[in-house]
C-alpha cells in the first residue's frame, strides 16, 4: 500500500482554525468566504443540482463550525472541508435513492444560477449532432455523463479533473491510498470517455 504524503495546513489556516475554536464569528465568516467557492463547486459537480448543492454546501459549513474541534491539522483545511462535502453529497444521493429520486440536472451555465435557481430538469446525456457541434452543449453533455458515473468514479474525477486536487489530497479527502486513487481515476476516466462518446 502506497501511503499518501501529508499536505499540512498553512500557518494562516491554523490561526484561523484556532480563532474559530474560540467562537470568533468573524473568523468563521472568513473561513466560509474563503472556501465556499470550492465547497459549492464540488457539491454542484457531485450532485448536479444547484439548490441541492447550495443546501449541502451550507450544511458543510454548519458541520465544520460544530466540529471544528475535531480538526487535527493533519490535512489542509480545504481538504478537510472537501472530505465533509463528499460525505454529505454521498448521504444526499443515498437519500435520493431511498426515495427513488433521480436528478441528472442541467449544469450548463452555473453562473446564471446566481440570479435564480438553475433549471433542474433532467438532462439527456445522449449525444446529438447539434450538441456535438457546440462547445457549450459539449460541456453540458460532459456534466450529464459525469452524473451517470458511480459515486467513487464521480468523486475522483471531480476532485482531480475539475477541482485539480493532487493525488495526495484526494487520498486524504477520500481516505484511500495512493494506489487506489490512481487505479480508480484511470478506470473512471476511461468510463467517462466511453459515456461521452456514446460507447456505453
Amino acid at each position: 500500500m502506497e501511503p499518501a504524503r501529508v499536505s499540512n495546513p498553512t500557518e494562516e489556516e491554523r490561526h484561523l482554525v484556532q480563532r474559530c475554536r474560540q467562537a470568533d464569528a468573524a473568523a468563521f465568516d472568513q473561513l466560509v468566504l474563503t472556501h465556499q467557492q470550492q465547497v459549492f463547486a464540488v457539491a454542484l459537480r457531485m450532485l448536479g443540482h444547484w439548490d441541492e448543492a447550495k443546501d449541502v454546501a451550507q450544511d458543510v459549513f454548519v458541520l465544520a463550525y460544530r466540529r471544528i474541534g475535531t480538526f487535527r491539522g493533519e490535512a489542509k483545511l480545504s481538504t478537510w472541508l472537501v472530505a465533509i462535502t463528499m460525505n454529505l453529497c454521498r448521504n444526499r444521493r443515498r437519500w435520493w435513492a431511498r426515495r427513488n429520486r433521480l436528478i441528472v440536472a442541467s449544469l450548463d451555465d452555473p453562473v446564471e444560477g446566481e440570479e435564480g435557481p438553475m433549471d433542474p430538469e433532467v438532462a439527456d446525456p445522449s449525444p446529438t449532432p447539434a450538441a456535438q457541434a457546440m462547445g457549450h452543449e459539449q460541456q453540458h453533455q460532459l456534466m450529464a455523463a459525469l452524473q451517470l458515473l458511480d459515486d467513487e468514479s464521480r468523486s475522483v474525477v471531480v476532485l482531480r479533473d475539475i477541482q485539480g486536487l493532487s493525488y495526495e489530497e484526494i487520498a486524504q479527502a477520500l481516505r484511500w491510498n495512493l494506489g487506489t486513487v490512481k487505479s480508480r481515476l484511470s478506470r473512471a476516466r476511461l468510463r467517462l470517455k466511453a459515456l461521452v462518446d456514446g460507447r456505453v
Binding site: Q36, F40, L44, Q58, P110, E114, Q138, Q139, L142
Partner: peptide
C-alpha cells in the same frame, strides 16, 4: 481530449447568500 474539455468548463460561482444561509 477529455481532460482538455474539463479545462474548458466555466468556473462555478458560489451563491451570494450562501453565508447568510449558513
Amino acid at each position: 481530449q477529455l481532460l482538455a474539455s474539463f479545462k474548458g468548463l466555466k468556473a462555478v460561482e458560489a451563491p451570494r447568500d450562501l453565508l447568510a444561509g449558513v
